[in-house]
Simulated scan of single mutants.
Amino acid sequence: MNKKISFLTPIRVAMVVILFAFIVFLQMGDKESKASLKTVTNKVIKSIKVEGMVESNNRMFKKFYGLNASDYEGVTLYAPETNMNAQELLIVKLKDSSQAETVTKAINSRLETQKSSFEGYGIEQFDMLENHILDVQGNFILYIVHPNATKADQAFRNSL
């Protein structure tokens, strides 16, 4: 029995491989979460102690990051109670994923300002800043400076 391979067989195989690669590519992209900012915030806050931080308003967000909270779907900011504390929690729900770069630049600018403030005398605070977490997941951004930042990040990811 002599079977001939059709000249279309390699084309069919190539099409299946391309389709599979396309499906994998689609799965790798950042997905937008339907979770509410309140739900995400509550889960993150339950995972850590927020002692030393106070919930702040949009004015403080503007002061720290130079951004307007009204440009985003929602913003949660827990700021340090005093200037001697570096602990901070920021969660931003973006209206559009294209806003992520602007927010991350503002966060990195804030981080550098804080590092220069604590460098040399606030060793524990500086170490916390060095071990910060900045996590962008689709339409949510988490920035946290906290001794349990990893725990907060895990709660953040699980809440999305």
Rank of each mutant, 00 (worst) to 15 (best):
K34I: 13
N42M: 13
V54Y: 11
L37S: 04
N68L: 12
M28T: 04
L37H: 04
S117A: 15
A69L: 00
G74L: 04
Q99W: 03
I107W: 05
F64V: 11
R110L: 10
Q27F: 15
Y121W: 14
E73S: 14
K63F: 07
T39V: 14
L67C: 09
E32L: 10
S116T: 15
L89C: 10
A69D: 01
V40S: 11
F61D: 01
Q125F: 04
S70Y: 02
T76Y: 07
V50P: 04
G122H: 05
S70M: 00
T76D: 06
T41V: 12
K43V: 05
N83D: 12
K34G: 10
S98C: 08
D96S: 07
G66R: 03
V54S: 15
K95D: 06
V103D: 09
N42L: 15
L89E: 07
F118K: 07
I123H: 13
Q99P: 09
V40M: 09
R59H: 04
I45T: 12
E112T: 08
T113G: 13
L89W: 05
S70A: 05
F64G: 02
K49A: 10
E81K: 06
Y121L: 15
I107F: 04
G66M: 03
L77G: 11
L37P: 13
G120V: 06
V44H: 11
Q114N: 14
I48S: 02
E124N: 15
L94F: 00
Q114G: 11
Q87E: 11
V92M: 02
S33N: 06
K63Y: 10
K62H: 04
